[in-house]
Nucleic acid binder design. Structure first.
Lengths: 330, 330
DNA sequence: TTGTAGGCGTTATCAG
DNA sequence: CTGATAACGCCTACAA
């Protein structure tokens, strides 16, 4: 089908090895010969078959990316920066949307193995499960694996985590400084990441000397879910004057509910989201949000993977600090 | 490194070909032998090297996806559905964020060639340029290529397009029926897709018998850009009572500007976005939007690629109808 | 039913 | 400086 190194060799009247030398510009080849070959390569639009090349060099130069659903805003952003960073280093990414189930994810881990990826990045704390740990140690134990916002204790696994726990704790502190002391935390999925945020919420309250039971409020994982949950929350707990949502999208639904109820934001109820995403800017009033530094997190993940690939010892686990971006809802 | 077919063969006391037969469950192998081999495969966590396999079967089972920037909401959605559809068929996607420049994109097309992808999907009308056409005919002429929302006249290129032109024209009609007749179209990038929307706007006006010059308003491609442009638009053209934005994100910025100016939506100014994205639902009031059926478009793209791969003749170019989803801004 | 031999497109290691 | 030759891991005749 495609033109091979042999076709070029024949045309140039040399051997395949000489052509190979020209392609990979190794020395030990006559400049004239090289020039002649290079012209032919261009003439025939020759491109080396990376697959064949990888077979002998034992390097696929492919990285596997697993993500639950790339449409989730913060995962999209991660995937973007990771791809950019890896492409810069000449790697290419094969991406799979795995959904939430461990069995399906295990299948994809096997697929990555078959494709002989040189490394993998799992985006999201939900990959932090026993089943995934087992799958990695069984099928993907000979290449570095980085988890974005998660970690598994395995020799070849690295973790880059957002310090959302302290971030949320800081949010509580901010509210106290503004006189908002009846706080609620609205959570959708109980992912490891969200659990940590919740912990931060509880710790924040304790730090402020609040002895009451923290008000944790469950909601469906959607704009509408947050809308309804917020309405119910305010009906049952009219004293609430500060709500933090596990992610910006939920906060947007919450803001809408409060607005519809005629509740003044931020005077009567102050609102904070998490992710510092575009959602927060579309929201009216504009959302104050905990910036978990997704870009840094993602780029670091890619870099750590690259370091691990070059056998440079890197930290197994790093933490990236979060910071509050204040807008109009606080 | 990884265990090979030979390792298994040696352990099982058979030849490599017998192992191969067991793996690809071909007949002409003793059930007992097969069973024994299968056990060993499991025991050693053997997985065939797809790369090596691809070399001989001449099938990489990889599809290349090129997208300007996957963070752009409608492209994210496309990439998601395309990946899901292709994965279902056992293909894996290698994705690159190319940015807008033709030279860079040409480089990526070459990379796809080197990787010997079996097909490619280019997401976005901006791939509809002469330079890309040339690159495809030069480097990627032996595999099917599908353009999402675009088309190039090349034997191996297929196009799946949203009928946004008629969609926008329908928006104009809708407005007329509601008595809004001083309309404006706000555009950021002059992509082929946006140009078509603009054409639809102009045609819609003509259909209504409007002889005035259509009011086309330029803006920067961001939430803030749309915000500022809208303010200026309303200052210079206070008579405007209907604005359609090239994409939802811009419309969200516009809605915000109108709200800040104390303009009643939709009574005083009616607003329509395009894409029917989550942005429209976060926006307050909720955005009426032209649904360009991105999901259908994307799934069709993947299906057409699959059909083309199986040499089933498919239409070179299909059109998917858009429809208006009315919410609170009209 | 099984094994042998050859080849997929490259690179690497030797000789020459 | 250049050319055989042997891998890389797998599949597919063809032969046994």
């Amino acid at each position: 089908m495609s033109v091979t190194i042999y076709d070029i060799a024949k045309e140039a009247g040399v051997s395949a090895s000489t052509v190979s030398r020209a392609i990979n510009n190794k020395d030990g080849i006559h400049p004239e010969t090289k020039k002649r070959i290079l012209q032919l390569l261009k003439k025939y639009n020759y491109f080396p078959n990376e697959t064949a090349r990888g077979l002998v060099t034992k390097a696929s130069r492919m990285i596997g990316i697993l993500v639950s659903d790339i449409r989730t805003m913060h995962h999209t952003v991660s995937a973007y920066f990771i791809e950019r960073e890896l492409a810069k280093q000449g790697y290419c990414c094969i991406i799979f949307n795995t959904g939430p189930e461990d069995e399906v994810r295990t299948d994809y881990i096997q697929i990555l193995k078959r494709r002989r990826v040189e490394g993998a990045i799992l985006i999201g704390s939900t990959f932090q499960t026993e089943a995934i740990k087992e799958a990695i140690s069984k099928y993907l134990n000979d290449v570095p694996v980085v988890i974005v916002n998660g970690y598994l204790d395995l020799p070849n696994v690295y973790g880059v985590l957002a310090d959302e726990m302290n971030g949320v704790s800081d949010c509580v502190k901010l509210w106290y400084s503004k006189g908002h002391k009846n706080l609620a935390f609205v959570i959708d999925l109980h992912t490891p990441s969200n659990e940590l945020k919740m912990l931060g919420f509880e710790q924040g309250l304790r730090n402020m000397g609040d002895k009451r039971a923290p008000l944790i409020w469950e909601c469906e994982s959607s704009l509408q879910g947050a809308y309804e949950a917020t309405k119910k929350l305010m009906e049952e707990h009219p004293e609430v004057d500060g709500i933090i949502y596990a992610v910006d999208l939920l906060a947007a639904g919450g803001v809408r509910a409060l607005t519809d109820m005629g509740i003044a934001i931020p005077e009567q109820v102050s609102v904070i989201g998490i992710d510092n995403s575009i959602y927060g800017e579309i929201c009216n009033p504009r959302l104050t949000s905990l910036d978990n530094k997704l870009m840094d997190l993602s780029i670091s993940s890619a870099r750590i993977l690259m370091d691990a690939l070059q056998k440079q010892l890197t930290t197994k686990k790093i933490l990236v600090f979060s910071s509050i971006v204040e807008r109009e809802t606080t």
